[in-house]
Design a protein around this nucleic acid. Sequence first.
RNA 1: GCGCCCGUCGUCUAGGCCGGUCUAGGACACCACCCUUUCACGGUGGUAACACGGGUUCGAAUCCCGUCGGGCGUACCA
Length: 493
Amino acid sequence: MVVTRFAPSPTGFLHLGGARTALFSWLWARHNGGKFILRIEDTDVQRSTDASTDQILDSLRWLGIDWDEGPYFQSQRLPIYHDHLRQLWEKDAIYPAFESKEELDAARKEAEDAKREYVYTGTSRGLSHAEAQRRLDAGEPFAWRFRTPTEGFIEVPETLRGDNDVKFACSEIGDFIINRIGTWENPGMPLYNFVCTVDDALMGVTHVIRGEEHLNNTPKQILFYRALGFPLPTFTHLPLVLKNNKKMSKRDADADARFPVSVSGRRDLGYFPEATVNFVAMLGWSFPGDKELFTVNELVDAFVLDRLVKSAANFDEDKYLHHNGWYMRNLPLDTIVERALPFIRAAGLDVDSRPAEWTRAAIALVIERMRLLAEIPAAIEYLFNEPTGYEPKGVKKVFGEEGVAALLNEAAGLLEGVSDWRKEAIEEPLRLHAEARGIGLGKIAQPIRLAVTGRTASPGLFEVLELLGRDQTIIRIRRAAEAIPALLAANPG
RNA sequence: GCGCCCGUCGUCUAGGCCGGUCUAGGACACCACCCUUUCACGGUGGUAACACGGGUUCGAAUCCCGUCGGGCGUACCA
């Protein structure tokens, strides 16, 4: 059975790159009818928070990514790790290093200054097992290190890069550290490479799918797999998600309010989970042919690891927006209405005093012009409130036409005579009037549009008027006609 | 610096393993036109790419080498 996992560290929100990693792991499990595990990598107690865990879980649920097991918390699995560490010590695969942090920092700095790569060269490796154990028993602080072979290479079998193309020299890996400093009685918290390996192995993970930034960690993990006698999973390293050619990182925070890097930030702007999943899946994965719009179920069907791309992908905001706009137009209207309501209320529009059918029609009217839910309130605002002003460029261009005020009053008079207030019945007299005067419909429609909405652009005018109601329509038209001389005086030429 | 990864239109990508069918296809963005009461949607068309240099070959985007460029890593973070 295929078993995958997503293993975030709870040190912030779930960002879009992480969401993609989670999605691909989840898709692979679902595609194969396998199991998807959620594991929280909270061994760094300094940085981990419960709030972060909650937010990550929330974001995953919002995206529709569910898990079959977990969430497991590594901070609760310490005995397991220490047990395996003791096994490794008995086999002498690891050894305790007694150097202090200060000594190590100095050694690293020295290597840096000499422009060499830092590799641990402490003397603890040479201690006899018995001698080391004596110091352990005496309570000396130490950290475990891996007894890495001094020569040879570690090959990293990799889905996208081949079985033996990626390899690391042991001499450059060195005797890396396994856990934070501690004592025999009070062992220090183990570090990422170790807990990750132990958990993946113990949880039966068959496919490790993670970001490419972990490629360098993999040889160390392979060393653990071997020492512990665990079979190797299949490793797949996803190309990075870039933003402006830099790795998209949660450490960048949501710097630009329009383009949050967090999943929750996108949700709050009115991006859809459907669009997010679809768009993010196209970053580094493709389907043969030209298909780019996928439902989650289609993704589950189509997703295979060998269609993954090797090169990093830049996050294109325009395309994301476009996808979102597509879902805006193609998701069921009731879904959109339901999701739009909170945004409309938050904008202070009194939507709840309106009939549900009216609201539905109002939203339907603007939907194909919208790309984000957050854009909706501004797009329907004039249906609730009279315009507080008129677009300056419209005042100049539309209200500036000869005889517009008179035309508006004529239109108002015509509309007063419309008994059946439906868009067809509204359109007819206006269209006839335009013909009679020998002018295009636009010559009448544009001034009315500006008078009624305050803007030069809106959905179909007659639909807008229908929703607005006859009284409001006529009041606004007459009011505008009256205001035109003053408006033009204030905005000459 | 060192290690690792990557390199097709501005961006996401197809094609590359199995060289000719690629005068390099699609999508987003952009431009023009059509539709039209405005905006948008939709439709049609257009601009635009195989990083560079060698090699192998009758023939290379596709295979090999080098160069250059970009990214990631280089923690008692994950």
